[in-house]
Amino acid sequence: MVEAALDLLLSQLPVVLVDGITFGLQLALVAVGITMIFGQAQILNLSHGEFAVIAAITSALLIPLLGVPLAVLAGIALAVAFGAFVYKVVLLPAFRLQGENRILLGLFLMLGLYLLLHGYFTNQFPTTYLSIRPEVQTVELLGMSFRFSAVLAAGISAVLLALLAVFLKTTMTGKAIRAVSQNETGSMLVGITVDRIRLLTFLIGGALAGSAGIMRGLAATMGPESGIELTVLALLISVVGGVRSVPGTVVAGLMLGIVYMVASFLVGTYLSVVIMLAVTIAVLVLRPQGLLGESE
């Protein structure tokens, strides 16, 4: 029976790999936001996956009215606006504190926010799912046929991540973001207003997570209860990827995405989550400095 499963896996390997890459890039989209926000503001955003839920549910509700492109944009816009709300309103008490106290308060504020949103969405929209199905169903590549939506989702995610990397590397604002995450007082001295940079980080985080929610709806389905799973997986990826590096986060995302899809092909969804988390924890124990981080 095991041999049969392995045979099947081998024949389907490219398809499974593409699914893994697609999922991994979505996780990376969520994870870079978590990483940036923690780097900027020392806030561990446990409600980050809910940004994806907001975007997905909003678009799912609006698609019948506005059509896919506009509805998707509206969903992402709402996630971005929510990012601003979180930063400007919800987190206000946390920014009055410093150091570990801020980290703790921020963590609980975001945990509370997650519960609030999760309770609201699962209660209000229990059966609303985002599921975007393009008319083109498959693409032929190297003699194999792949699901077009999965390839498209992977492509868009990759482009977004590349844009982010270029933005952080080359623009003044991007450099400022990296400067703030390295040294708060130092950057205040060179005239960067920490407040604006932080706000920007929450906006970008909201946009990326929102896009991840849409991509999930494109590649699979995205419903109101998927938020926490995205959050936890993305949290692990940002730790595994090394706290400061976008490439590290992407590599970690791809690794976990592929592990998840292969495992899910072999043992089913529930146990594949277990396997993926176990792999992550093993990596964390063996390489606590992150995948691409240099050892001390």
Partner: peptide, 8 residues
């Protein structure tokens, strides 16, 4: 389920 929101 909305009680979850209350706890949040």
């Amino acid at each position: 389920p909305i009680s979850l929101s209350v706890y949040g």
